[in-house]
Every structure is written in structure tokens, then in C-alpha cells.
Nucleic acid binder design. Sequence first.
DNA 1: CATTACGTGTCAGTTTTCTGACACGGGTCA
DNA 2: TGACCCGTGTCAGAAAACTGACACGTAATG
Lengths: 153, 153
Amino acid sequence: MSQDDVGVDLETSLGYLLKEASSALRAAMEEVLRPLEMSVTHYSCLELLAQRPGLSNSELARGAFVTRQSMNVLLQTLEREGHVTRPTEAPVGKVLPTRLTPRGRRRLEKATAAVRSVEVRMLAGMTEAEQAGAFRILRSMIHSLREDNDRIR
Amino acid sequence: MSQDDVGVDLETSLGYLLKEASSALRAAMEEVLRPLEMSVTHYSCLELLAQRPGLSNSELARGAFVTRQSMNVLLQTLEREGHVTRPTEAPVGKVLPTRLTPRGRRRLEKATAAVRSVEVRMLAGMTEAEQAGAFRILRSMIHSLREDNDRIR
DNA sequence: CATTACGTGTCAGTTTTCTGACACGGGTCA
DNA sequence: TGACCCGTGTCAGAAAACTGACACGTAATG
């Protein structure tokens, strides 16, 4: 189609490149998770719970970058399927700490391996130093983007 | 809440960090675009058209990382509002080359400035060399993630 | 002690985006 | 030429995510 890359500015924009990378990562994850009948959000929720048991709905939502309302419907599904458990009433306040069931943990195992392989593939051809650099740089971007937000709020 | 960062693995995962950065960027863009009553996808479409006039619906969709169906409904809105134009019938094939109207270009101007400021903020505290490094690294990630996809297809 | 602010879970409705499907034009190749 | 494949635009329906709103518990504030 447009064979000649006019590439005015898009190709030099780090923001666009960041979105591109994130999109490629998501697509790759969807591809390996599809055979397991699991979406990325699905997986994120389970992985979060595996690494930090007892997280609340709202905390899971923040960790998976969705609203708590969205996470809530997901949790209802996962609970119905027997992958997670939530107490019927809150031990303290309104917070309902969520935990993986053995079944949920089992379901997560293959998914974790699949996603891990994607991340390994993503890092292929990068030296340890480059990975450390990428880490620093992304952290710096996140920090810079958020500090103004905090100033406003 | 969970004040102690157990941080088993999430905090060491470049994939998660990438998603985090992308999410922060999107949030920052939404914030500066909201006063202009423009969404990120909205802006992406106009910016793409400004830099590469005559792009088709499908090409715009790929450039904005949405499906062509989603881009189509967006283009219908933009066309109704008089920000873009599409020929009533295709000059060649079925492709309908889209172009910005003067009005669309005017609307884009402020948005571009706003988004540019976000990108500048994101890059604050990074040296030229670091930015170049970030560029290389992100490009490498995208390439690595996509090459297996191509192998499958 | 009263009040305020904040975070949470949840209900309802809406918007956005996606998946699936179809017909069409153009290029490729035997 | 005719068969095939690919990319495109578009219609329709479904799924996912969001915004807005409310009541409730906790902690901080006066």
C-alpha cells in the first residue's frame, strides 16, 4: 500500500514506539493464551493473586490496569468457575480479600509458562546490560508521567 | 493497603513494566486531551492523517492499533463532524483515501501541542543517549515479538 | 465526640471495541 | 483467460470496558 514510509514523526516518537511495543506484547500474549482459553486480563488477575494472595478487588483492578467494576465482573466469573474464593463477608471494612483455589493455581501454571516464554522471546537479542537499561528507562518514564498527576490531585 | 511490596516477580518483569508505562502514557494523554473533548484514538487518527494524508481506513486502524471496524465508526463520526473527507467512491479498488479538512487540521493543532508536552514530560530527566537507547531497545522488543508471529502465519 | 475525607463493593446504563461474516476489486500465476 | 489469494469496506451482533451513582466502613480531622 503506502510502501514509502514518509515517516514524518511517528517513527521518531518514543510515545508511539511505546504503544507499538505494548501492543505487540499484548498480541503475543493473546496468541499464546488463546489455546488455554484465557484472556490477558484473566491471566493478569490470576498472576496477581498468585504473587500477592489476599488482594482486594480494587487492588487487582489497579494491578491489571482496568476499573474495579470491570475487575468485579471478572472475579464473579472466576469465582463461579471455582478459580478464586472470596469470603462472604468482609473481615474488616468492606474489603474482600481474594485467594486462588488449588484449581485456579493449576489453571494458572500453564499460562504462566506461556507468558514467560513470550517475555523471553521479547528479550531475545538483548544483553543483560540492555535489559537493565530498559528497566531504568521505563521506570523513569513512568515516574515522570505520574509526578505531574500527583501534583494536580 | 498492601504497604509492603512483596514484589515477587511483577516488579522485575519488563513486560509488566512496559504495560505500566504504556498505561501511564495513555492516562496522561487522556488527561490533556479531555479539555479538548478528544479521545486518544480520536487524536491518533487525526495525527496519522496529518502525517500521512490519504491513508485508508484499514491503514489508519493498523496505525492506531484498533480493528478496521472500530476505525470505521470513528471515521464516520469525524466525517459527520467535518474533520475528514472521504471520496464517495473509490478511485481504485475499494480503498477510500481519507484526508483532513482545514477544520480537522485546526482541531488537531492544539491536541498535537498537548500530546507533545506529555511526551516531553515523559522524557524529562533522560539524556539524549538514554533516549536513543530506549529507542533501540523498544525497536528490538517489537522486532523480536513479531518475528515469531510472521513465522506462524 | 462529631464531621469530614477516603477507599471500597456493587448496581445500572452506556459506550467502545471486538468477532464473525459477506461481497467486491486487483494482483498473481498457471 | 480463469482460478485463486489477499486486502478492503461494511453490516450486524456480542463481548468487554467504561462512566456515574450509591451506601457503607475506616481513619483522620476539627
